[in-house]
Amino acid sequence: MHTTPKIILGLFAILLFNCKSTKVVSSGNANFNLSTKQLIKENAKQVANFKTLQSKLKITYTQKGKSQSYSVNYRTKKDEAIWINATFSIVRALITPEKVSFYNKLDKTYFDGDYQYLSDLLGTELDFDKVQNLLLGETLYDLNASDYKASADDETYIVQPKNQRDLFEIFFLLNPSNYKVKSQQISQPKEFRHLQIDYLKYQDVETQIIPELIKVIAVEASDEMTVELEMKNVSLNEELRFPFKIPSGFKEIEL
């Protein structure tokens, strides 16, 4: 498969030009006095509420010291679909709760299957909700006070399971000013795998807090892949189409 679609789709596993009142979210006043239950409740209040979102998405992919950048059109219908389209529709992808589909006009190939492809790219099990949460700055796993505990250091809240598993460790770092996710980290120490998603900047779009700059780092043994996602010109709640049809004559990719 050509490198371009692997890079573009990799961002969704680790994911238009009428911007409306977009601004960088200020840090506000830090509050380190919340209980775990209060913190999780405040984090839940910040979940972005919209029907549709579209933006221009710049993707910078780095591996083995080499970087490449691409710009794609990105659209999503909350809880239903994630759609990306590269220039001239060379690569188009549609991700739904049921499956992952994409095609590549450069080599006339397509994929139409389950989430194992994206899971293998980032080294952790993914489904639609996790991919959507990654792109919107929400925790990959649902938080609840009965299963998680929180502590604080000088700059952040650290939320983790009360009982970390030996084979699978999870940490969520929350901003004490707006309770949004600063970083989420999933490690499989015995497999030498680590996935880290850092939210370097958020933006306020029509009163909703949306990520502006995301950095995804996926490590397996000595191999490291970094994907930076810059979300620009975000607009919400417009009528959007999600056209997707695999062209005839394309060869299916066996993964």
Rank of each mutant, 00 (worst) to 15 (best):
P5L: 00
I7E: 00
I14E: 06
C19L: 15
T22W: 09
V24C: 04
S26K: 11
K37L: 10
K41L: 09
A44T: 05
N49C: 07
Q54G: 02
S55M: 13
K56I: 12
T60E: 14
K66V: 08
S67M: 06
S67C: 09
S69H: 04
S71M: 09
Y74L: 06
K77W: 04
A81V: 11
F88Y: 10
I90P: 00
V91C: 05
R92Q: 08
R92A: 02
L94C: 03
L94P: 01
E98W: 04
V100A: 04
S101F: 01
Y103H: 06
D107A: 08
K108W: 00
Y110T: 07
G113K: 07
G113C: 14
D114C: 06
Q116T: 02
Y117V: 09
S119R: 05
L121Y: 08
G123E: 08
L136N: 01
L140G: 08
L140S: 10
A145D: 07
A145Y: 01
Y148C: 05
A152R: 10
A152I: 06
E155F: 12
T156S: 14
Q160K: 09
N163Q: 15
R165V: 12
F171K: 13
F171D: 11
F171R: 09
F171E: 08
L174N: 01
N175E: 04
K180P: 03
V181T: 03
K182D: 03
K182Y: 01
I197W: 03
I197Q: 06
D204M: 14
V205C: 07
T207S: 11
Q208P: 07
I209Q: 14
V216R: 06
A218S: 14
A221E: 12
S222L: 08
D223F: 03
T226F: 13
V227S: 08
E228L: 01
K232L: 14
V234S: 12
S235D: 12
E238S: 13
E239A: 07
L240A: 09
R241V: 12
P247V: 02
P247H: 02
K251L: 05
I253C: 10
I253S: 10
E254T: 14
